[in-house]
Design a binder for these strands. Structure first.
Length: 423
DNA sequence: TTAGGGTTAG
C-alpha cells in the first residue's frame, strides 16, 4: 500500500492516493508513519502546507506519532512555497515535541535562513554541525551552503568552500557545479553595481570547462545559466556557440532551456525563429511566464507596443496572474521610446509595483527632463523602502544641477541621506 | 517516506 500511495503522491494524484488509503483500511491494512509521511509530502508539494499539516493532525488522531521525516517534509514544503517563517516555526515545534532534528532538518533550516536573507544565522548552524561534530554533514549540506552563500552575495566564500570540498572528503556533484557557476555568473552583475568589473563571469565559464574536462554529464542547468549570463552581458556570439554545444550534446531541452534559447534568438534579432519556437511549445501548453515575458520584452524593444499589449492581454486570458516583470519591461521601453505620458498612464494602472518599477519610472522621467517630478518620486520611494539604483539617484541629482535647480539638488541629497539612516 | 541547482525587467 505504501508503495502505491508513494507512486500516486509523486505524480500529483493525491485524490487517488487517498482512495488507496481508504481501500487499504477497509481491507484491514492500517496506515503507518511512512504512509502518513508520504501523504504529508504529497500534500505539501502539490496542494498546500495547511492541508499537509491537517494530515499531521490526522495521524496523531489515529494514534501514530509524527517523526523527524514528517517535520522535514513539512519544512521542505514550507520553504518551497516561500512560507519561510512557517518553516522556522515547524523546526521549533519539532524540538518542543522532543523529536530530535537530524541532518536533513538542519539542512532545511539553513536553506530557509538563506532564503530569509540571514546568511550569518545559516552559517552559525553550519558551524554547529561541522565544528561540534554532533552529526555528520553530507554533500547536500555543502550544496545548500554554496548556493545560499552565492545568493546572499558571498561568492568568494562559496568558492572557498567549493575548492575545499575534497579536503573534507566530498566530491562536487553536477548540482554543486551548477550552483557555483550560477553564483559566479551572477556575481558580476551584483558587483558591477558598486565597483568596477571583476572577472567572476570568466571564472564561471572556466568552471564549465572544468566540468567538461572532468567528464561530468551535463544537464540543462549549467548551460542555461551560462547562456543567459552571456546574453545579458551582450556576448551574443559566445552564447550562441555554447547553445550549439548544448544542442549537439543531444540534451533534450526542458522549458527553462527553451526559454533561454528563445531569449537568445530574440537578442540575435531572429524574432521570427523565436516566435516559431514559442508557438511550438505553446501548442503543447508548455509556455510559462518566463516565455511570455521574453516575447513581450522583445516586442517592446522593437517599439511594437500594440502587439506587446495584445500579448499581455493574451496572458490574462490564459489565466496567468499579473505579470510584474513584463509590465516593467513595457514601462521601461515606453520611456526609452520617448512616450513618457503613456508610460505614466501604464504606471497608474499597475496593480503591483516593486523597486524595478520605481527605478524605471524615475529614470525615464529624467530622460524626459522632468527632473522636479523625478526628484519628488525618488525621495518618496526611498522613504517607502524601495531600492533605487545609484545610477538613477545620480541621474536625478545631476539632472537637477544641470537644469540649474542647484538648491533642489542639495535638498534631495539631504533627504536621501536622512531616509537611508532610517532604513 | 523527506533536500539542494537554471530561464524574464531597472
Amino acid at each position: 500500500m505504501n508503495i502505491c500511495i508513494a507512486s500516486m503522491c509523486k505524480s500529483n494524484q493525491i485524490v487517488k492516493a487517498e482512495s488507496i488509503l481508504i481501500d487499504g483500511i477497509k481491507l484491514g491494512l492500517l496506515p503507518d508513519v511512512v504512509t502518513y509521511n508520504t501523504l504529508i509530502d504529497g500534500y505539501s508539494r502539490f496542494v498546500s502546507i495547511d492541508r499537509a499539516y491537517d494530515i499531521l493532525n490526522r495521524m496523531k488522531e489515529a494514534g501514530i506519532n509524527p517523526n523527524v521525516v514528517s517535520y522535514n517534509s513539512l519544512m521542505s514544503g514550507s520553504v518551497r512555497k516561500s512560507s519561510l517563517s512557517k518553516s522556522l516555526q515547524l523546526f521549533d515545534e519539532m524540538t518542543q515535541l522532543g523529536i530530535s532534528p537530524d541532518v536533513w532538518s538542519y539542512n532545511k533550516l539553513m536553506h530557509c535562513l538563506f532564503k530569509l536573507g540571514k546568511p550569518d544565522d545559516a552559517n552559525r548552524v553550519f558551524k554547529d554541525i561541522v565544528e561540534n561534530g554532533e552529526m555528520d554533514c553530507c554533500m547536500s549540506t555543502y550544496n545548500i551552503m554554496i548556493n545560499g552563500l552565492c545568493k546572499n552575495g558571498y561568492v568568494s566564500n562559496a568558492l572557498m568552500l567549493f575548492r575545499n570540498l575534497q579536503r573534507n572528503g566530498f566530491v562536487p556533484q553536477v548540482l554543486t557545479y551548477n550552483a557555483m557557476i550560477n553564483g559566479l555568473c551572477k556575481a558580476r552583475r551584483l558587483v558591477m553595481k558598486c565597483c568596477f568589473r571583476c572577472g567572476k563571469l570568466e571564472q564561471g565559464l572556466d568552471l564549465l570547462s572544468e566540468m567538461r574536462s572532468k567528464g561530468y554529464t551535463f544537464d540543462g542547468f549549467a548551460y542555461s545559466i551560462v547562456v543567459a549570463a552571456l546574453v545579458k552581458t551582450g556576448r551574443i556570439e559566445e552564447a550562441g556557440e555554447i547553445a550549439e554545444k548544448m544542442m549537439s550534446n543531444g540534451l533534450v531541452p526542458d522549458l527553462a532551456s527553451y526559454n533561454t534559447m528563445i531569449n537568445l534568438l530574440c537578442r540575435k534579432e531572429r524574432v521570427d525563429e523565436a516566435l516559431k519556437l514559442v508557438n511550438e511549445i505553446d501548442r503543447q501548453g508548455l509556455c510559462d511566464q518566463y516565455t511570455h515575458t521574453i516575447i513581450i520584452h522583445s516586442l517592446c524593444k522593437d517599439g511594437n507596443f500594440v502587439d506587446a499589449k495584445k500579448h499581455l492581454d493574451y496572458m490574462n486570458t490564459l489565466g496567468f496572474g499579473f505579470n510584474l516583470v513584463a509590465f516593467n519591461c513595457y514601462l521601461d521601453c515606453l520611456g526609452k521610446a520617448g512616450l513618457i505620458d503613456q508610460a505614466l498612464k501604464v504606471f497608474d494602472t499597475m496593480e503591483v509595483k516593486d523597486s524595478f518599477t520605481c527605478t524605471i519610472l524615475v529614470h525615464n522621467l529624467c530622460r524626459a527632463k522632468k527632473f522636479i517630478f523625478a526628484s519628488k518620486l525618488l525621495v518618496f520611494y526611498i522613504k517607502s523602502g524601495f531600492q533605487i539604483l545609484m545610477a538613477t539617484q545620480r541621474a536625478v541629482i545631476d539632472g537637477l544641477s544641470t537644469a540649474s535647480y542647484n538648491n533642489e539638488a542639495r535638498k534631495v541629497k539631504s533627504k536621501i541621506w536622512k531616509a537611508r539612516l532610517k532604513h
